[in-house]
């Protein structure tokens, strides 16, 4: 199945703006994020704490819905999903 992970702001600079991936059915969101971050030490440090959990300041959204970190860890991706990952917002 195909999923799209979009990064913004600092995370865009670290990972690039878009990752369009083909992943096995049932793959969990945080597993995919770990795979993206693994070859990128700076990115991995920015995204994950040493125990492998998403850092508190990381915001994950599916569409316009924010996904809390506990849910992100368990979320099984579906074909066509687009997930956005970004730091705290600073508009206005």
């Amino acid at each position: 199945m195909n999923v799209t992970i979009r990064f913004f702001a600092q995370f865009r600079e670290l990972f690039g703006p878009v990752h369009e991936l083909s992943v096995p059915e049932g793959r969990r969101l945080t597993e995919v994020l770990h795979e993206i971050a693994e070859p990128n030490p700076d990115g991995k440090t920015a995204l994950f704490s040493p125990d492998g959990r998403l850092r508190d300041y990381v915001i994950v959204m599916q569409g316009s819905e924010r996904i809390e970190h506990d849910r992100a860890a368990a979320l099984e991706l579906r074909d066509g999903n687009t997930i956005a990952v970004f730091p705290p917002v600073a508009g206005g």
Binding site: F8, A90, G91
Partner: peptide, 21 residues
Amino acid sequence: VPIWKKEHLRGGGTVWVEGNA
């Protein structure tokens, strides 16, 4: 609202404006 600002400092370098977290 997902909007971010990156400042270009007069003395050189850049910094992302701290967000709400």
